[in-house]
C-alpha cells in the first residue's frame, strides 16, 4: 500500500487537496488501496461528523445521513415499514460484517468495477486511462449489457443504490443536491469517473421521498448469499381495476450505474397487470441492450425477474 497521511474531518463543508480522499467505512477503499488500485496521498476520515441519523422530513419521506451504516439502515423501523425494497436490497448486499462498517454515502461511492479494474497489473481504462479494456474479449460474464462503451463494460455493484434510484432518492452534498439517477455516470470515453461529483465534494445525506406503493427487491446471484448480483430488480407498483396505475423499476448488475428503467415504466403505465404486460415492458427497456459474447443470458434473466417481482407485488 502506498503511504498516506490520515486526519479526521472537522466539518461537513468538504474540500480536499489534490490526491486526497474521504474515508468512511473503508470496506471498498481500503481494499482498493491494498491492491494498489487506489493510491491516495491523504485520507480524511468523515465518520466522526455525526452524519449517522435517519430523520423524517417535514413533507414526508426520510433523510438518511451519509454515515448511517448499511446494517442500521436495513433494520430501521421506518425503512422496513415504508420502503421494504430498500431494506431488502441492503440485506441482499455483502455480509453482516461488511454491512456493519459500510455507510450510505460510501455504498453509493464504491467503485464501479470488474476483475480487470481490481488488478493493478492489468490494462484497464478505468484505473489506467488509455490502456484498453480486456473485459470486452475476456471475462465479462457478469458485466454490463446496457449503456456500456468500447472503453468500459464494468458494472456498479451496489444493491442499495438500485433500490434508492427506484425511490427517486436525492443526494445532498457539501455543494448541492443531485437526483441519485444523475449521480453515477455512464462510462463513455471517460470511464475513470464513476460519478459527477467534483473532487472534495462530500455526500452529507440522501433524501428519500414518500413512496406509498408496495415495493420489493429481487436479486439473482451465483450462490445463495454473499455474492454480487448477476441481475437484480427493484420495483414498486400499484394496480387498480386490473391496470397498473403507478410503477417504479430499476435494474442492478446491468450497467455502469444503477439503471432506472424509465422506458419500462412508461410502457407499463395504464396497461393490464399481467405477465404479458410485465414482459413487454422489460423488453421495451432491454431493446437498447448490447450484450457481449458471454452475458446475453442477462436479457431473459432480467425479463423473468421483472415479471416475477411485479407479479408478486400486484397479485
Amino acid at each position: 500500500m502506498k503511504t498516506f497521511t490520515y486526519r479526521t474531518a472537522t466539518d461537513v463543508s468538504g474540500g480536499l487537496e489534490p490526491g486526497a480522499a474521504f474515508l468512511a467505512g473503508g470496506t471498498n477503499l481500503v481494499d482498493l488501496m491494498k491492491l494498489g488500485v487506489a493510491t491516495p496521498d491523504a485520507l480524511v476520515d468523515v465518520t466522526r461528523l455525526g452524519l449517522d441519523e435517519v430523520t423524517e422530513l417535514p413533507e414526508g419521506g426520510l433523510r438518511i445521513g451519509a454515515g448511517v451504516r448499511n446494517s442500521d439502515l436495513a433494520a430501521h423501523p421506518l425503512v422496513r415499514r415504508d420502503y421494504p425494497v430498500l431494506s431488502q436490497a441492503l440485506l441482499a448486499g455483502a455480509s453482516g460484517q461488511l454491512r456493519n462498517m459500510a455507510t450510505t454515502g460510501g455504498n453509493l461511492l464504491q467503485r464501479t468495477r470488474c476483475r480487470y479494474f481490481m488488478d493493478a497489473a492489468k490494462p484497464c481504462n478505468k484505473h489506467a486511462p488509455g490502456s484498453g479494456c480486456p473485459a470486452r474479449e475476456g471475462d465479462h460474464r457478469n458485466l454490463a449489457i446496457l449503456g456500456a462503451s468500447e472503453h468500459c463494460v464494468a458494472t456498479h455493484p451496489s444493491d442499495m443504490a438500485v433500490a434508492l434510484v427506484a425511490l427517486d432518492a436525492v443526494v445532498n452534498t457539501s455543494e448541492r443536491s443531485i437526483p441519485l439517477r444523475e449521480l453515477h455516470r455512464l462510462p463513455g470515453d471517460d470511464p475513470a469517473r464513476d460519478t459527477v461529483l467534483r473532487h472534495g465534494e462530500l455526500i452529507t445525506s440522501v433524501d428519500v421521498p414518500p413512496l406509498g406503493l408496495p415495493s420489493a427487491y429481487r436479486k439473482v446471484r451465483d450462490r445463495a448469499s454473499y455474492a454480487f448480483a448477476v441481475a437484480s430488480v427493484a420495483a414498486a407498483a400499484r394496480v387498480a381495476d386490473g391496470r397498473v396505475i403507478d410503477v417504479r423499476l430499476a435494474f442492478g448488475a446491468v450497467a455502469h450505474k444503477p439503471w432506472r428503467a424509465l422506458i419500462a415504466e412508461e410502457a407499463l403505465r395504464g396497461k393490464p397487470a399481467t405477465k404479458e404486460s410485465f414482459l413487454a415492458a422489460a423488453d421495451a427497456e432491454l431493446a437498447a441492450a448490447e450484450p457481449l459474447r458471454d452475458n446475453a443470458f442477462k436479457l431473459p434473466l432480467i425479463r423473468n425477474v421483472v415479471a416475477a417481482v411485479l407479479e408478486g407485488l400486484t397479485s
Binding site: L23, G26, T27, V30, D31, G96, Q97, M101
Partner: peptide
C-alpha cells in the same frame, strides 16, 4: 479476521487501525 468493534462484528482486515 472478524472481531467486535464497539460490540459489532466487522472484518478487521479492511479497517485501518488509526481510524
Amino acid at each position: 479476521c472478524t472481531v467486535l468493534l464497539d460490540g459489532r462484528r466487522v472484518n478487521s482486515c479492511l479497517i485501518l487501525a488509526i481510524a
